[in-house]
């Protein structure tokens, strides 16, 4: 059984996506990379579960 949620899980996807783009607005490439990295690590901690993280990395790599 998959530990990662791969079914639709966000009520207002456009809103979430917009949050992401807005956060990056006006940033240089380096600043954006750094922001992404901090975001990933923060979400990592929220998830907490190594199996979920492993599966998410697999999805991202496909």
């Amino acid at each position: 059984m998959s530990a990662l949620v791969t079914s639709r899980n966000i009520a207002i996807p456009d809103e979430a996506y917009d949050l992401l783009l807005t956060a990056h607005e006006g940033l240089t490439k380096d600043e954006s990379d750094a922001l992404n990295a901090r975001l990933i690590l923060t979400l990592f901690n929220h998830v907490g579960d190594l199996d979920v993280i492993r599966e998410a990395i697999e999805v991202a790599r496909q």
């Binding site: 990379d33 750094a34 990295a37 901090r38 990933i40 690590l41 923060t42 901690n45």
Partner: peptide
Amino acid sequence: RVFRNAVLHLSRRHDFA
């Protein structure tokens, strides 16, 4: 290096990092 510095940046304020 980007991830390393992200960890250090977060660690100043957030214990989880």
